[in-house]
Amino acid sequence: MKKVDLPLLRDASARLLFLMKEEEYLTLLEEFKILVKQMEKIGKIEGLEDYEPMTFPFDVAIDELREDEPAEVLAREEALENAGSTYMGQIKIAKVVG
């Protein structure tokens, strides 16, 4: 496992596209120390490796297929209703290429 330190936490928050205050990183570092210790303890629980990772409480079986036809369609205007920046029927963001 990667070593958890302040540079790693700063990098992680940068990848998640938000900044945190310095004291928040320190709180988080303390939380990580506790969490890693507890997860190490869990790793020592007898027989743990005999269990498959549980993704959902129950199996979700789907035994029906719908026709491949549009059922409910959003109008373009509706889809854009909540966007803060639009232009000519599209979401407008900063230039990506060139």
């Binding site: 869990i42 629980i45 027989g47 743990l48 269990y51 498959e52 990772p53 549980m54 993704t55 409480p57």
Partner: peptide
């Protein structure tokens, strides 16, 4: 590991 432990707890 957390998911395995969840299975064991359940």
């Amino acid at each position: 590991r957390a998911q395995r432990n969840r299975a064991k707890v359940v």
